[in-house]
Amino acid sequence: MTQATTKKQDRKEAAKEKKKQIRQQYKQTAERIETDPDFAASFVDFAARFPTYSEKNQKLIFMQNDEATICAGFNKWKEEGRAVRKGEKGIKIFAPTKKKSRDENGEVIKNEKGEDEEEAGFIMVTVFDIAQTDPVEEETTN
């Protein structure tokens, strides 16, 4: 086994563990929202800031940064002329994705039209609150 393969496996294991921790924290947050009226009221106020996010992602953001106001991924902030500050800890949420369906041999499954079949799923992605970014200075040329 090569060192690159080992590093890749280590990253996969770390990501799997992080996902497990996030899910456990999410469960605790969801339970607290259901049982603590004051906490639930705080969440409702918070969630109103993120109307385009799913309730699950609203809860995920809330539990990781209850002061967040506008969230986006690293590249989106870059497109918006902002840079994520070095050392900032991202907020983990789930984003929809599609992947090719495969049979037990790992071969891509084709539909009746001969096109690759896809299955929907979710992957964990990292977003940052606007408070974790700074405007990028425009370079002036003379």
Rank of each mutant, 00 (worst) to 15 (best):
K18A: 15
M1Q: 11
Y53I: 04
D116T: 12
N57S: 06
K18Q: 15
E55S: 03
K99N: 04
D38I: 02
T133H: 05
E137S: 05
Q64C: 08
Q3V: 11
K76E: 15
I109G: 02
I109M: 09
F62L: 09
K8F: 13
K86P: 00
Q132W: 03
Q3P: 00
R49I: 06
T133E: 11
K78F: 08
N57G: 02
K27W: 07
E31P: 03
M124H: 07
L60A: 01
T140F: 13
F94Q: 03
G114M: 12
F62T: 00
K16A: 15
D66W: 09
G81W: 01
M124G: 06
K59E: 03
D134E: 11
A47P: 01
D45V: 04
F39K: 02
P37Y: 06
E80Q: 07
T52S: 08
E80L: 02
E80F: 00
N75A: 11
D116W: 12
A83R: 04
E115Q: 14
T35S: 05
T126V: 15
D38K: 04
V108Q: 05
G121Y: 01
G73A: 10
E138M: 15
E107C: 07
A15N: 15
E80D: 07
A41V: 08
V108A: 02
T29A: 13
T5R: 11
F128L: 01
V108L: 08
E17T: 14
A40G: 02
G121W: 06
F62Q: 05
A120Y: 08
E115N: 13
G121L: 10
K59N: 04
G90D: 06
A14D: 14
V108W: 05
D38T: 03
D103N: 10
Q25H: 11
F62G: 03
Q28P: 12
K20W: 13
A72S: 13
E117I: 14
M124E: 09
I33F: 06
G106E: 05
N111A: 02
K110V: 09
P135L: 12
T2E: 13
R11F: 08
D66S: 13
I22F: 13
K76S: 14
I91V: 04
T2K: 09
E118R: 05
I93V: 05
K89N: 11
N111S: 11
N142Y: 15
K8C: 11
A83T: 08
R23A: 12
E55G: 06
K19N: 13
K110F: 12
F43H: 04
F50N: 06
D103G: 08
F74C: 12
K56C: 00
T29P: 13
A4R: 00
V84C: 00
G114L: 12
S42D: 10
T35E: 07
P37C: 03
K99I: 03
V44H: 03
A4P: 04
K8T: 10
S101P: 02
D134P: 02
E13V: 10
T5E: 14
G73I: 07
I22A: 09
N65Y: 07
A4S: 09
V44T: 04
K27R: 15
G81N: 05
T35F: 01
E119Y: 10
E115M: 14
N105Q: 06
R23M: 15
F43S: 08
G90W: 00
D36I: 04
K76H: 13
A72D: 15
A95Q: 02
Q9G: 03
M1L: 08
R82M: 09
K99F: 10
Y26R: 07
E17L: 14
